[in-house]
Nucleic acid binder design. Structure first.
Lengths: 212, 212
DNA sequence: CGGCATCCGTGACGATACTG
DNA sequence: CAGTATCGTCACGGATGCCG
């Protein structure tokens, strides 16, 4: 977000908004929290952003030290963008926005785009609230799959698609259940009890969720 | 912030940015966390905002349920703007932005405006870290005074000027010390020990800060 | 005088087209 | 695939004027 125009205020919140307050910037961070991504993939998961604005933001963010651009080793040799450690520190900001925004979420509007991994942080909170936030958790939705690294200190907090290794827990639910969990209207343990969330796996998270 | 243009994404963070992502909106919230304020005072403590944008934001925020406009009882009969409970729930968002932005604060630039109460949330964090976040605390800086309601569940978290009643603790420090505390480079207890922060009062917070 | 509304110049944004 | 170029529109910032 770095608005080209700084607020010029000696205030840490204003400084943060100088860096990440521009339109799209924090949503780009949300995308990169899933790990390194290519330009085209970012563009696909940020419906509405124009190509020039996305390119411009990625440059701004690199200048600000939020992201780096890296060329993958051949074969492939494509460019990927990823968060720096400093960029990853924005996770609490997205968390706070997500908690507050849950109250604004409501029902899905016809004009709303959806991606499975947009539910990653809300579900991570639900897991934390249920005392089941440990290890690798795979989540399967109609919109697609993603996985959570629940106790991870560094590196991506979540990722696209199925878990790269056998996860400690696998969750499967429908869109309505996922939305209700995200809005905080439904408790994860209750949802499991009512059979709205199917839990498999034998990690500590799976066991914690299954015990009534 | 409510960008006139919604992101149209079924994601709680995106919804939050729809509501508070516009330029100036979160800084207006920062100002209103100090309690009800008049248009002119808001304009004075938000250097750089143009009159029409401020008026427009205040209308947007009222539409979104973040603020209310109220006419004070005569004499005076001026309008004041204040946060709704929903608007006050944005405190964690400003907290998270402030924590992250502390790393961007650095030295004060010649172009930077300053207001004493912009240090309220950083100092509240410093008090919390020092285990002295209870009761009414008055802070005196060169730039001006403000007070903190450290344990307050509802209502304004901080206010302008001196404390309305006798505070449990009174802190006095210079600008450099306050900035170092805000950046997290200096520990409040250390600062007290070194005499960079003068503590008076006999509340639990004052006692906690004075005991080495 | 406080609280805006209006006007205007500049820049940011979004859509589309195009290029290496 | 990964952007750059172009362009119309709208948001922003600054100044000024109006109105209770």
């Amino acid at each position: 977000m770095s608005p080209r125009r700084s607020y010029d205020q000696y205030c840490s919140a204003a400084r943060a908004l100088d860096a990440v307050g521009d339109r799209w910037t924090l949503l780009i961070v949300r995308e990169l929290l899933a790990g390194p991504r290519r330009y085209t993939d970012l563009h696909a998961d940020l419906p509405g952003v124009s190509t020039d604005v996305l390119a411009s933001r990625l440059k701004d963010m690199e200048r600000e030290g939020l992201t780096t651009r890296r060329r993958l080793a051949p074969p492939g040799a494509v460019h990927v963008y990823e968060l720096t450690p400093r960029g990853e520190e924005l996770l609490p900001v997205l968390e706070a926005l997500g908690v507050w925004g849950a109250g604004e979420l409501g029902e899905r509007r016809p004009t709303d785009a959806v991606r499975a991994h947009w539910f990653a942080l809300p579900l991570l909170r639900a897991l934390r609230a249920a005392g089941a936030s440990e290890g690798l958790v795979e989540v399967r939705l109609e919109e697609g799959d993603f996985h959570l690294r629940a106790g991870a200190g560094d590196g991506p907090v979540y990722g696209h698609g199925r878990a790269p290794e056998e996860p400690g827990a696998r969750l499967e639910m429908d869109a309505a259940t996922c939305a209700a969990l995200s809005r905080g209207e439904l408790d994860l343990r209750d949802a499991v009890r009512e059979g709205r969330v199917a839990v498999t796996g034998d990690g500590t998270a799976a066991k914690a969720l299954r015990e009534t």
